[in-house]
Design a protein around this nucleic acid. Structure first.
Lengths: 153, 153
DNA sequence: GTAAAAAGCTAAGCGCGCATACTAAATGCA
DNA sequence: TGCATTTAGTATGCGCGCTTAGCTTTTTAC
C-alpha cells in the first residue's frame, strides 16, 4: 500500500543521496559540537578562528577574505567574529588602507586555543570517518574526491 | 609562513572531509530551498510531508513514528506539523488508543502538493549530483554507499 | 569633478537543529 | 492496587544559515 500515497524514484524513500547527505552532516555537526564543548567554541567559531589563524600570518585579513576562505556567510562571519572578539580571541582593528574594512588579528590566546581545538577536531573527524576504511595516506579517497567535486573546488 | 600560525594535518586547511561535507550540505540545502520555493515549502516541511504521505497509507501515524522515519528532531517535527496543519496540508487528530499521541493524516491537498514537490526535488537532486557521473541505474554508487555507512543505516 | 556603481560591514528577522525542562498518559512491577 | 519508570508531546532559549534592508566608503564611468 505504501506506493499509493507518494510517487518517488526511491523505494524506501530514504535512499536519496541528498537526504543521506543531510542526515550525515547533522551527525557530524553533533560530533563536532561534543568535541568542541570543552573549549567553549561552537563549530563555526572554531572554523573561523582556525581559518583566521591560518591566514593571519600573511598580513591583514578582512572579514570578506576570511568568509571566502571558510566558505561562510559574510553576515554570520561578522556576527561570530564579534563574539570571538568579546572572548579576547580576536582583534578587529581598522584597516590601514580601506576605511570600510576591518583588519583581523588573532590574539595569543586565540592562537593557542585554535591549536588545542584543532587536535580535538581532527581526532573527532578521524573517528567519524573511520567506517569508510580510511587508509591514512596522503591521497584523497573516493569519498573526499566526490565531496570536492560537489563543493566546486 | 602559513604553517606558523596553525598546526594541522591538512595542507590547505580545506581538504578535511568534514569541512567539505559541511560546505556541500550547505550548497545542497540552498538548492533545495530554491527548488521548493515555488511550492511554499521549506526543506523540513517537505521532508515531513513526503514521509507522512509515504507512511500514512499504512494506518495512523504518530509524530514519533514520523520523526523516526525522517530522522528529524521530535521538537522540530511537532512545530513543523503544526505549521503544516495551519496550511491545511495535514490533520492532527487524537489517537484512537493512546491519549498522549496524535494520529496524523495527509489531506488531499497535502498529498497533491507532496507529489508535485517531490518531482521538483528529485530533478534538483539529479542536477546537483550530476557531477559525480551518475549512471542512473538501481545499484547505489560508491558515494551513496559511503553516506549510508556514515548515516548508520 | 561629479555622479553612479560596487564593496565592506551592520541590524533585524525567519526557519532550523538541538538542549533543557515540563505535563500528561501509558507501562512495568511488586 | 499502588507507585515508579517510560513515553508522546509541548514550551523556552541559543547558535547557525540565510534574506532583506541600510549605512559608509571606495571605485568606476562619464
Amino acid at each position: 500500500m505504501s506506493g499509493e500515497g507518494l510517487r518517488t524514484r526511491f523505494g524506501s524513500a530514504e535512499e536519496s543521496p541528498g537526504l543521506l547527505l543531510w542526515q550525515v552532516t547533522n551527525r557530524w555537526q553533533a560530533a563536532q559540537r561534543a568535541a568542541l564543548k570543552p573549549y567553549g567554541l561552537t563549530h563555526v567559531q572554531f572554523v573561523l578562528l582556525a581559518a583566521l589563524t591560518y591566514l593571519a600570518a600573511e598580513g591583514p585579513v578582512t572579514q570578506k577574505a576570511l568568509a571566502d576562505q571558510a566558505a561562510t556567510d559574510p553576515m554570520m562571519t561578522s556576527q561570530v567574529l564579534r563574539a570571538l572578539e568579546g572572548q579576547g580571541l580576536v582583534r578587529r582593528l581598522p584597516h590601514p588602507h580601506d576605511k570600510r574594512a576591518r583588519a583581523l588579528e588573532v590574539t595569543d590566546e586565540g592562537r593557542a586555543l585554535a591549536n588545542r581545538a584543532v587536535a580535538a577536531v581532527e581526532a573527532c573527524d578521524a573517528a567519524f570517518f573511520a567506517v569508510l576504511g580510511d587508509q591514512g595516506d596522503d591521497a584523497p579517497d573516493g569519498f573526499t574526491r566526490a565531496l570536492r567535486a560537489l563543493a566546486g573546488r
